[in-house]
Design a protein around this nucleic acid. Structure first.
Lengths: 161, 161
DNA sequence: TATTGTTATACTCTATAACTATA
DNA sequence: TATAGTTATAGAGTATAACAATA
C-alpha cells in the first residue's frame, strides 16, 4: 500500500469525517434531510397546541372550506380515507370541528369548524408562520416564493411519473 | 344569505375545488408534498434492485467509506443505532457488505462492501440518477445546484433551532 | 351497482430503554 | 465507568380489504 498504512489501521480513521458526497449530490437525499429537520421543529411548535401535522393541516382546510366532505378533504390532503377518519375523530372529540349530516346525501358529512377551532387555527398559524420565518426567512421574499414554486414544479413532475 | 343559496346546498359545492391556499403558502407543506411524490417514484426505482431508501443510502456510504463503523454510519445518516442494525443485517445477509471485527477495538465492526455490493451500488446509482434527471432536470444545471444549496441551508437553519 | 364513511389490520419508519461484550 | 452493537418494544404514518348505510 502506497501510504504505508495497514488495512486494519485505515479502517479506524473515520472519526467524524465520513464522506457523503455521493448522497449529497442527489437532490432527493437533500430534500429528505432538510425536511426531517424542518419537521422536527414544526412538531415542537404544534405540540404547544396539542396538534400534529395532519390534524393541523385538516383543521386549516376545514376552516377555509366550511362544509367540505371527508372524501374531498382526504383527496386535498393526499390521505387515504381510513386514515382521515381518526384525524377527524380527534378534531371532533376536542370540539374543534363538527360532523353535520347532509340532507341531500345522507351518506356524507359536512365538516365545519367551531369557534374554538377557528381560534386555534389562528393562534397556531401565527406560531407556524414564525417557525417558517425563522427557518426560511421572510415568507414574502422573492427567494422564498421561488423555492415554493420550485417545490410545486418538482411535485408535478414527480407526480407525472 | 345574500347569494340566495341555502346553507345545506352550499355545503355540497366542493367537487374538486377545495381551497388549499393557506397551506400552499407554507414552505414546509410544499416540501412535504413534493418529497412524498419524489419518494414514491424513487421507491419504485429501488424496488427493481430489491433496495429500500435506507438500505441504499447505507450501501452508498459503505462503498464510499470502506471500513467505517456502524456508529459513524448511523451518525452520518442521522439514524438511531438500533434501526441501523437491521439495515446492516439485511445488506450482510444478501452478501452486499461484510462486518469485519476490528483488532484494535473488538466491540466495533468495520463495514466493507463486497464485489456484488459495489456492482449493485453502480447499477442502482445509474437508475437513481436517471430518476432524478427525469424529475429535477439536468443534475449539473445551475438551477439544480442552487436547489441543493438552498435545501442544505434550510437543513442547517432548521437544525440550529 | 357504486359511493361515503368506517373498522380491522398490517407494514414501514422511527425512537427509547436495557442488555452484552468489550474498553 | 463508558462505549459499540444488539434486542425488544412502542409509537407514528400509511396502505388495503371488507363492511354498513345510502345513493
Amino acid at each position: 500500500m502506497v501510504t504505508g498504512k495497514k488495512k486494519t489501521e485505515m479502517r479506524e480513521d473515520f472519526s467524524g469525517k465520513v464522506s457523503d458526497e455521493t448522497l449529497r449530490k442527489l437532490v432527493g437525499y437533500n430534500m429528505k434531510r432538510a425536511f426531517n429537520e424542518v419537521q422536527a421543529d414544526l412538531v415542537q411548535v404544534l405540540q404547544q397546541f396539542d396538534l400534529r401535522m395532519m390534524t393541523y393541516s385538516a383543521l386549516i382546510l376545514i376552516v377555509d372550506n366550511p362544509g367540505l366532505r371527508q372524501s374531498h378533504l382526504a383527496e386535498a390532503l393526499a390521505v387515504e380515507r381510513p386514515n382521515l377518519v381518526i384525524i377527524i375523530d380527534e378534531l371532533e372529540r376536542r370540539g374543534l370541528i363538527a360532523r353535520e349530516r347532509l340532507i341531500s346525501d345522507r351518506r356524507a358529512y359536512a365538516l365545519v369548524a367551531t369557534l374554538p377551532g377557528r381560534q386555534l387555527y389562528e393562534n397556531a398559524l401565527r406560531a407556524v408562520k414564525a417557525h417558517e420565518t425563522k427557518i426560511f426567512g421572510d415568507l414574502d421574499d422573492p427567494e422564498t416564493l421561488k423555492l415554493i414554486e420550485t417545490l410545486r414544479q418538482v411535485e408535478r413532475r414527480a407526480r407525472a411519473r
